[in-house]
Amino acid sequence: MSLRRAEAVLARFGLDRYMLLLVLTVAGATVLPARGDAAAVLSHLTHWVVALLFFLYGAKLTTATILAGLTNWRLQLAVLALTFVLFPVLALALKPVSMLWLPAAVGVGFLYIGCMPSTVQSSIAFTAVSGGNVAGAVCAASMSNLIGVVLSPLLFAWLIPQGSGYGIDPGAVWKIVQQILLPFAGGQLCRPLLAGLLNRYRTPTIIVDRGSILLIVYAAFSAGVVNGIWQVIGAGSLAILVALCLVLLAAVMGGAMLVGRAAGLDRADGVAVLYCGSTKSLATGLPMAGILFAGQDISLIILPLMLFHLLQLGACAIIAQRMARRLDLR
């Protein structure tokens, strides 16, 4: 079987090169984790790559798209309600269930999933494939991330129980603003100079996007392996974690469809709500976790988010393919 044919077969199950690279990165960190000076260099490199990523996000997003999406207030409110209300409620409900069989840090990770903003690139791509409102999805996902830079850590700090041992430093919000929001604003200011260049050369942007996530995953799991993460999480615990992530994903996707109908949205807007309201950003969540949970069990805390991200990509890819086939038949 040729490489392209093998990739086509895997794509039917929502598996692409990026997802395989994520799995290989975790495997690489398990076999050859970064230690000592190498880990310190990797930490500094990751910081600047993430800043570059959000600078490019800002440079690519047009002001006209933001304004056009904001006028569709029902779509925007539906996505924000799903992302920052329904998701945290469901995650809060699953947290004690997860802590029956899994370490406390993993339960904290479930709560962390609920507080994260929506994905940007994947939710927009799935919306486009499914024939949804792409402009609305661009605005909804972008607004979710901009609001989430400040709201996500505050929401997590409010929901995490006192005395749990997993608090956050109040100064962490400002560090997140420095690493994510300020580069985004700088990208917006530089957009007139860079927009044409970024539209002509999209591959470097994709490399920065995917590469930054892979770097963060490698750094986090390197630290986890050094601290014995796989002695704490075995195959049985991993299976339970996957099952709980699937329950969370199914519940929020069902909620997204109900919210779309209750808001009276048409099919195109409903598709955008489904993808933007039921997905969580790894690109925002991982660097934020590195700031919020510095010195804590970060590899265990981000493990639920990583698994949820992989599962959401697979589920959304399958749904998008089916929606696209229905559109072709019409």
Rank of each mutant, 00 (worst) to 15 (best):
M1W: 08
S2T: 15
R5W: 13
R5I: 15
R12S: 01
F13L: 13
R17T: 10
L22K: 05
V23F: 07
A27G: 06
A27F: 12
G28Q: 08
T30I: 08
V31I: 15
D37K: 01
A39K: 02
A39D: 00
V41L: 13
H44G: 05
H47Y: 15
G58W: 02
T63G: 11
A64L: 11
I66V: 15
N72F: 00
W73Y: 11
R74M: 03
R74V: 01
R74C: 02
Q76C: 02
L77H: 08
A78L: 05
T83R: 05
V85A: 15
F87W: 00
P88D: 11
V89C: 10
A93P: 11
P96F: 12
L100Q: 14
L102K: 06
L102V: 12
A104G: 07
A104N: 04
A105N: 06
V108R: 09
G109K: 06
L111V: 02
I113S: 07
C115V: 12
M116T: 08
M116C: 15
P117I: 07
P117N: 09
Q121Y: 00
F126M: 15
T127I: 10
V134W: 13
A137V: 06
C139L: 05
A140I: 05
A141K: 06
S142Y: 06
N145I: 05
G148S: 06
A157Y: 00
W158S: 12
W158D: 10
I160H: 02
Q162G: 12
Q162R: 12
G167R: 04
I168E: 00
P170W: 03
A172C: 09
A172T: 14
I176G: 07
V177A: 10
I180N: 08
I180G: 08
L181K: 07
A185C: 09
L193T: 06
L193C: 07
L197C: 13
L198M: 13
R200N: 12
Y201W: 15
T203M: 13
I207T: 11
D209S: 12
W230S: 13
S237K: 14
L238I: 02
A239W: 03
L241Q: 07
L244V: 09
C245R: 03
L246T: 03
A251E: 04
M253F: 10
M257C: 14
R267G: 08
V273E: 07
L274C: 11
G277M: 11
G277H: 07
T279S: 14
S281K: 08
G285M: 06
G285E: 01
P287N: 10
A294T: 12
A294M: 01
A294Y: 01
G295W: 07
G295Q: 13
D297W: 00
S299K: 06
L300P: 03
I301C: 03
L305Q: 02
L305N: 01
M306D: 00
L311T: 03
L313I: 10
L313W: 03
G314L: 09
R326M: 13
R330Q: 14
